[in-house]
């Protein structure tokens, strides 16, 4: 097996006195889909922000192809990690094609002088970017929306557009932050197929999601994050049946809760008796 494409080692993130992440590690192999699940506030998005240079980890390091990640989001994108956002952050007043063309920014090389004089090379680069953008829109399944303003697209298409825009940066690793939030089952399934297609392009994917069913049906490897700590990791079938995960997600099984309640009642009762005595 080849060396992992992305490796996060003991990433710790402290904000003031709050430890948002503590020694979280994650390994992503080429062509792999890794899922990151956990309850709200578990630190999933914070972890993403550490992977994309938005935050610099307080401790630990992130390596892309064995190289330390730069601490500037633009440089990280240029190095080959692209992301989408939890609450969609498109450029609302640009058309879909223009949004994706912005994604091509780092892969185009046209200085201001060439831009002003518009030589044949400039036109060629511009046309290539436009063609690639249209190609990616078609790939994401919204080829017909090219000239619509992003803000006028339906919600599901906005999510797809964000993915197409991220793909335009020619990433090796794609980080998706809740790509199916607010989607109906059909849309969720379409997104799952789209992620498989992206994996087949040779892009490795990390997905944050609440929907455990979606994650278990998609990922090769799942990490569970609870209160800033890595709780369990492993293949979906292992993680799915792990009692800690079930507890974190569903709470304790009823009989166990029952027992605890009784235990508590006894304690209280004992206490009451103590008071009475």
């Amino acid at each position: 097996m080849t060396a992992p494409i992305l490796r996060a080692q003991d990433v710790t993130m402290i904000f003031g006195g709050l430890t948002a992440l503590s020694e979280v590690s994650l390994t992503l192999d080429r062509g792999q889909i890794v899922g990151l699940i956990g309850p709200n506030g578990a630190g999933k998005t914070t972890f993403f922000n550490c992977l994309t240079g938005l935050y610099t980890p307080s401790k630990g390091q992130v390596l892309l192809n064995g190289r330390q990640l730069p601490s500037d989001p633009a440089q990280v994108t240029i190095a080959g990690i692209a992301r989408t956002f939890q609450n969609i952050r498109l450029f609302p007043n640009m058309t879909a094609v223009e949004n994706v063309m912005v994604g091509r920014h780092a892969r185009m090389k046209q200085g201001p002088i060439a831009t002003i004089f518009r030589g044949p090379r400039f036109r060629k680069g511009e046309n290539e970017a436009r063609d690639r953008a249209k190609e990616l829109l078609a790939f994401a399944g919204i080829g017909r929306a090219g000239d619509e303003l992003a803000r006028n697209l339906p919600y599901g298409d906005q999510r797809r557009l964000e993915i197409a825009r991220a793909l335009a940066t020619d990433p090796q690793v794609l980080l998706l932050d809740e790509p199916t939030a607010g989607m109906n089952p059909q849309e969720t399934e379409a997104t799952r197929q789209l992620i498989f297609k992206i994996r087949d392009l040779g892009v490795s994917v990390v997905v944050i999601e609440h929907d455990t069913k979606f994650i278990f049906g998609l990922c090769d490897h799942v990490s569970v994050l609870v209160q800033g700590k890595l709780l369990v990791e492993g293949p979906p079938e292992v993680v799915r049946n792990d009692p800690h995960v079930i507890e974190a997600y569903l709470g304790k099984p009823p009989e166990e809760v029952q027992a605890e309640v009784q235990h508590a009642a006894e304690l209280l009762g004992g206490h009451d008796k103590g008071v009475n005595q």
Binding site: T77, A82, L90, H105
Partner: peptide, 10 residues
């Protein structure tokens, strides 16, 4: 439109 998103686009 969105400076952070722009940075995330490289």
């Amino acid at each position: 439109e969105d400076e952070d998103a722009a940075r995330a686009m490289g």
